Computed example of a mutant assay.
Amino acid sequence: MPALDYPKQTILITGASSGIGANFARALAARGAQLVLVARRLDRLEALAEELRRAHGVPVTAITQDLRAASVGAELSAAVTAAGLRVTGVINNAGFGTFGDFVDEDLERLGHEIAVDISAPVQISSAFLPDMVQAGEGFLINVASMAAYTPTPRMAVYGAAKAFVLSFTESLWAETRASGVTVFALSPGATSTEFNAVVGTDDATAGARMRTPDEVVATALAHLDRRNPGPSVIDGPANRIGANMGRVLSRRRTAAMMHRLTDPARRR
């Protein structure tokens, strides 16, 4: 793949109001890309948009969107078209998790988690990927997680959702690899974001060493800039080792080990 000419790109980022999404926006604006920032918190989006315009002189459009919406892909596509834009790159970054035994979880909140973590990436990919394939250029990055590589007791729905994103994206990589479009999944591990605050407990990351959003974004953009990027990339050497260990151990041992690691009593 030829190197991206970033000033000619219009890149849509979901979950752009904080954390990894905001850092993607800052890094891409520094490279000269035009941005479409998507999240529910319009005040944060507009503040970030103004920061990026002032710092880098790039066009930035802020779109407030509830990613739980049943027609989120069509709604975002319509908003982008109404703004007179053509998206050439998509980063499906938005997502959230829940923590606790499945039998104790609130089903409505789990439904929202499934909508944001699974349905939204599928719908948004469907809304924008066909145009990229037809044009023979562009990229799609779907943010998965280290949780995609092992069973995740106490985060059963989140882990399953991210396993879906990983498998879905790697399949799209194979389907589109001759099209000129770059597709891959990005899997961060524990990262210093608002993730635990939204979940409601630091037990969600089991005391793991935190990577920074800057490190995660650097990993993703280095992979994007490769001549022949693979279908997925894991952020951080320790996380890559952990993913390989999960392939060596039996599913039984892995599930039992993760159940111990995520036990709140273990950290106290």
Rank of each mutant, 00 (worst) to 15 (best):
Met1Arg: 12
Asp5Gln: 13
Thr10Glu: 07
Ile11Val: 13
Ile11Gly: 06
Gly15Gln: 10
Gly15Asp: 05
Asn23Pro: 00
Leu28Val: 08
Gln34Gly: 07
Val36Arg: 02
Arg41Glu: 12
Arg44Thr: 03
Glu50Met: 09
Ala55Arg: 13
Ala55His: 11
His56Phe: 14
Pro59Cys: 08
Ala62Leu: 12
Ile63Trp: 05
Asp66Glu: 05
Leu67Cys: 11
Ala70Arg: 05
Ser71Val: 09
Ala74His: 06
Ala74Phe: 01
Ala78Phe: 00
Ala78Tyr: 02
Thr81Trp: 00
Thr81Ile: 07
Leu85Ile: 06
Val87His: 00
Val90Ala: 06
Ile91Met: 06
Asn92Phe: 06
Gly97Ile: 03
Gly97Val: 04
Phe99Glu: 07
Val103Gly: 00
Leu107Thr: 02
Ile118His: 00
Pro121Gln: 07
Gln123Leu: 15
Ser126His: 15
Met132Arg: 02
Met132Glu: 09
Gln134Asp: 08
Ala135Asn: 10
Phe139Thr: 02
Leu140Phe: 08
Leu140Ser: 07
Ile141Thr: 08
Val143Glu: 04
Ala147Glu: 05
Ala156Leu: 12
Ala156Asp: 11
Ala161Asp: 14
Leu166Val: 01
Phe168Val: 04
Ser171Met: 09
Ala174His: 15
Ala178Cys: 02
Gly180Pro: 03
Gly180Asn: 03
Thr182Arg: 15
Ala185Asp: 07
Leu186Phe: 06
Ser187Ile: 00
Gly189Asn: 04
Ala190Val: 12
Thr191Arg: 02
Thr191Asn: 10
Asn196Ser: 14
Val198Gln: 09
Val198Tyr: 01
Asp202Tyr: 02
Asp202Ser: 14
Asp202Cys: 01
Thr205Ser: 14
Ala206Ser: 09
Ala206Lys: 02
Ala208Asp: 10
Met210Tyr: 15
Glu215Ile: 01
Glu215Pro: 00
Val217Glu: 08
Val217Gln: 04
Ala218Gly: 04
Leu221Gln: 07
Leu221Asn: 06
Ala222Phe: 02
Ala222Thr: 12
His223Cys: 06
Asp225Asn: 11
Arg227Val: 12
Pro231Tyr: 09
Ile234Met: 01
Gly236Ser: 01
Ala238Gly: 02
Asn239Ile: 05
Arg240Glu: 15
Gly242Val: 06
Met245Leu: 14
Arg247Cys: 02
Val248Tyr: 04
Val248Arg: 03
Arg251Met: 08
Thr254Ile: 07
Met257Tyr: 11
Met258His: 10
Pro264Ile: 12
Ala265Arg: 14
Arg268Gly: 12
Arg268Ser: 13
